[in-house]
Computed example of a mutant assay.
Amino acid sequence: MKLLKLLVLASCSALPAYLQAADPVKGGELVIEAQCESCHDDRYGGGDGTQIYLRSDRRVNSLAQLATQVSVCNSQLNTGWFPEDEAHVVAYLNKRYYKFR
């Protein structure tokens, strides 16, 4: 019974499958290449595009929402990222700013 409880706890805290192989370093490189923060500068209006991730009223409150938002940005900016690239970006943003499990 203890083993079952441990397995359930481990699976609840594990990253989703699409993020397990994602590389946050690669994601950071993609964010720089796409100039994401310059777009965020315009949208946030504070002169520091990274603050969009940290604001108290942010619209992203889970890994699923983060993945959706990255996909929306990919589409709007026409970056040409493949799904695995989006996963790298999600892993980067999660590690650096959001810290979701």
Rank of each mutant, 00 (worst) to 15 (best):
M1S: 15
K2N: 11
K2Q: 11
L3Q: 14
L4M: 09
L4H: 02
L4N: 10
L4Y: 02
L6S: 10
L6K: 14
L6H: 10
L7I: 14
L7Q: 13
V8D: 08
L9Y: 06
S11V: 06
S11T: 12
S11A: 15
C12S: 13
S13I: 13
S13P: 01
A14K: 11
L15W: 06
L15I: 02
L15F: 03
P16W: 03
A17C: 07
Y18F: 14
L19K: 04
L19S: 00
Q20L: 00
Q20P: 03
A22F: 08
A22T: 02
A22L: 01
P24F: 01
K26R: 15
K26D: 07
G27H: 00
L30S: 03
L30W: 02
V31T: 09
E33P: 01
A34I: 04
A34H: 02
Q35H: 11
C36G: 03
C36Q: 05
S38F: 03
C39N: 00
D41K: 15
D42H: 09
R43Y: 09
R43T: 13
Y44G: 15
Y44T: 14
Y44K: 14
G45Y: 12
G46M: 12
G47H: 04
D48C: 13
G49L: 07
G49V: 02
T50V: 12
T50N: 13
Q51W: 10
I52C: 14
Y53W: 13
L54D: 09
R55H: 07
R55L: 08
R55M: 06
R55G: 06
S56V: 05
S56H: 05
R58S: 05
R58W: 03
R58L: 07
N61A: 15
N61H: 10
S62E: 10
A64Y: 09
A64G: 05
A64Q: 15
A64N: 15
L66I: 02
L66A: 07
L66T: 00
L66F: 03
N74V: 05
N74I: 04
Q76H: 13
Q76D: 15
L77K: 07
N78T: 14
T79R: 05
T79E: 00
T79L: 00
W81H: 12
W81F: 15
F82I: 13
P83W: 00
E84C: 13
D85K: 11
E86Y: 05
E86G: 04
E86T: 03
A87L: 04
H88T: 01
H88S: 13
H88F: 02
V90H: 01
V90R: 00
L93P: 01
L93Y: 00
L93V: 00
N94D: 01
K95T: 08
R96Y: 07
R96I: 02
Y97L: 10
Y98P: 08
Y98M: 13
K99Y: 03
R101W: 12
